Simulated scan of single mutants.
Amino acid sequence: MHELGILMEIVKTVEKFAVENQVDKIETLVLQIGEISSVIPEYMKKVYPAAVEDTMLENAELEIEILPANGLCLDCGKEFHATVCGGICPDCGSRNMKLVSGRDFFIKEIVCT
């Protein structure tokens, strides 16, 4: 489970941001995770308390937004939700696609006071 290590690095990044911007309290941390990334949102939520213990984020809420795995059909140009469609373009039926999102991982927002 590499989610704990990822969260610990996020905590370092967020704390550095807080110090540089003279932030006293962080209320919410919002992460965006691609639906086919190697990071499992449920595991992130499970290990979050351990990762933030004794840090500025100890009382901060964790919010996770799932980014869809979108594909771009290289035959007709249609963008579509690749996992819902099974990698098949709903317009032309082609399997010739390029994944354009869904493996991403971002710190979207740090809500501070």
Results as ranks from 00 to 15, higher is better:
residue 44 M to V: 06
residue 68 P to N: 03
residue 97 M to V: 07
residue 106 F to G: 04
residue 41 P to M: 07
residue 15 E to H: 01
residue 113 T to Q: 11
residue 33 I to G: 00
residue 102 G to D: 09
residue 3 E to D: 14
residue 3 E to L: 01
residue 2 H to M: 06
residue 33 I to S: 00
residue 11 V to F: 03
residue 87 G to M: 04
residue 23 V to M: 07
residue 86 G to M: 01
residue 71 G to A: 12
residue 75 D to T: 15
residue 86 G to N: 03
residue 84 V to Q: 11
residue 78 K to S: 07
residue 44 M to D: 03
residue 6 I to D: 01
residue 60 A to F: 12
residue 77 G to F: 13
residue 81 H to M: 07
residue 39 V to F: 09
residue 104 D to C: 14
residue 92 C to R: 06
residue 64 I to S: 01
residue 8 M to A: 11
residue 108 K to T: 09
residue 105 F to D: 06
residue 86 G to K: 02
residue 94 S to N: 03
residue 67 L to V: 11
residue 36 I to G: 04
residue 89 C to Q: 02
residue 70 N to G: 07
residue 104 D to I: 06
residue 23 V to L: 13
residue 60 A to C: 09
residue 20 E to Q: 15
residue 66 I to F: 01
residue 76 C to P: 03
residue 78 K to A: 04
residue 107 I to G: 06
residue 11 V to A: 10
residue 65 E to I: 13
residue 21 N to C: 07
residue 104 D to M: 08
residue 68 P to F: 00
residue 57 L to A: 02
residue 47 V to C: 03
residue 95 R to Q: 13
residue 95 R to W: 05
residue 48 Y to N: 04
residue 69 A to P: 03
residue 32 Q to S: 14
residue 48 Y to S: 06
residue 109 E to M: 05
residue 31 L to K: 00
residue 22 Q to C: 15
residue 14 V to T: 09
residue 70 N to P: 14
residue 36 I to N: 10
residue 56 M to V: 04
residue 30 V to K: 02
residue 79 E to R: 13
residue 45 K to R: 09
residue 62 L to F: 04
residue 64 I to T: 02
residue 9 E to Y: 13
residue 42 E to Q: 12
residue 100 V to W: 13
residue 105 F to Q: 08
residue 99 L to R: 03
residue 37 S to N: 04
residue 100 V to C: 12
residue 42 E to V: 10
residue 66 I to H: 05
residue 61 E to T: 06
residue 83 T to R: 08
residue 13 T to V: 08
residue 29 L to P: 01
residue 60 A to K: 05
residue 70 N to M: 15
residue 97 M to N: 01
residue 53 E to C: 15
residue 65 E to Q: 09
residue 51 A to F: 04
residue 92 C to A: 05
residue 112 C to A: 14
residue 1 M to F: 14
residue 31 L to H: 00
residue 101 S to M: 12
residue 93 G to R: 07
residue 49 P to E: 08
residue 104 D to S: 02
residue 40 I to D: 05
residue 49 P to K: 08
residue 41 P to N: 13
residue 82 A to P: 01
residue 86 G to A: 03
residue 57 L to E: 03
residue 70 N to L: 11
residue 34 G to L: 10
residue 45 K to W: 00
residue 69 A to C: 13
residue 101 S to D: 14
residue 78 K to T: 08
residue 14 V to Q: 02
residue 54 D to L: 12
residue 99 L to H: 03
residue 95 R to K: 13
residue 112 C to R: 13
residue 21 N to I: 10
residue 86 G to E: 01
residue 47 V to H: 05
residue 10 I to H: 00
residue 12 K to I: 10
residue 89 C to I: 02
residue 53 E to Q: 14
residue 39 V to H: 06
residue 92 C to V: 07
residue 23 V to H: 02
residue 85 C to Y: 05
residue 36 I to C: 15
residue 108 K to N: 07
